[in-house]
């Protein structure tokens, strides 16, 4: 049986912290450039240019793309034939804390949600999944909270007309308005339970945006068009680019329900992946 040491895991997570926070995902950069080319509104164009300049400057200067270096969400896929020597969760949180400290990122995490206290670097949110094989895959998503705050869940009736679901999703984006750093990437989870729909919506943000084919691509395109007619635009000051993409993930659900979760990401959608 293949073995892996906890220390290797911490090191890999540390490196993901650096990559995710300093270099914007290629698909997001591509979408921003495309939005810039398509934009007619002068101010919106200028803001989109600033976003591209910001990404380039962050990379060049080893600066975080955004000061909100997020609540780190880590998705782990463990091959069932892999043996982990040591404490997996501890190793991940150590990697997060050391990485955030080393790269001078922000300590945005309070231990107690009610009493708050002095912000720390960790822990992150860890989702563990077991898969075939003997490898382990880590994806780190530093989730900014300006946009996380605008996320919503609605439990629809199973007999609902899909028009109502579409209207809800568009309404969530409209409600985010200028506040959560548009142009957004809209992650949507449909099905499962209340909590699982939320996880699907978050996972939807990991899928590369634009030019992908998914079972939902027709609905994704339709929603993107509707959202981009809201004229919210970059910084909420008008323009075509209210969202860069809509990604939908679905799962089986119960005969009595239809959970729909919308997870909003700002334009600084950051994530990085490593397989050990």
């Amino acid at each position: 049986m293949r073995e892996i040491q906890a220390l290797e895991i911490s090191k890999a997570v540390m490196e993901l912290v650096r990559r995710a926070n300093f270099s914007l995902r290629p698909d997001v950069l591509f979408a921003l450039r495309q939005a810039y080319r398509r934009e007619k509104n002068i101010r919106a164009k200028k803001i989109l240019q600033a976003l591209l300049d910001n990404a380039a400057y962050a990379l060049k200067e080893n600066l975080a793309i955004c000061q909100d270096t997020g609540l780190p969400v880590v998705f782990v896929q463990i091959g069932q034939d892999l043996k982990i020597k040591g404490d997996l969760k501890l190793a991940i949180n150590k990697g997060i804390a050391q990485g955030y400290k080393k790269y001078a990122l922000r300590n945005s995490i309070v231990s107690d949600p009610l009493t708050r206290g002095k912000p720390k670097f960790a822990p992150g949110i860890i989702h563990i999944d077991l898969v075939r094989g003997d490898k382990i895959k880590f994806t780190l998503l530093p989730k900014g909270f300006g946009c996380e705050n605008k996320s919503q869940l609605k439990m629809f009736l199973p007999t609902v007309n899909i028009r109502e679901i579409k209207a809800f999703i568009v309404e969530v984006v409209k409600n985010a308005g200028p506040d959560a750093c548009p142009p957004y990437v809209v992650g949507i989870g449909i099905g499962g339970t209340a909590d699982y729909a939320g996880l699907l919506a978050k996972k939807a943000l990991l899928r590369p945006i634009n030019y992908q084919r998914s079972a939902m691509s027709k609905l994704e395109r339709e929603l993107l068009n509707k959202i981009n007619r809201l004229n919210i635009g970059p910084m909420g000051l008008g323009g075509k680019a209210t969202a860069l993409a809509v990604n939908i993930e679905t799962y089986s659900t119960h005969i009595a329900g239809l959970p729909v979760s919308v997870n909003i990401s700002c334009h600084a959608l950051r994530s990085a992946t490593e397989i050990l």
């Binding site: 600033a50 300049d53 910001n54 975080a64 955004c66 909100d68």
Partner: peptide, 10 residues
């Protein structure tokens, strides 16, 4: 005022 949102590095 508002300023360039999500441009912390710049």
């Amino acid at each position: 005022f508002v300023t360039y949102a999500g441009c912390g590095a710049l």
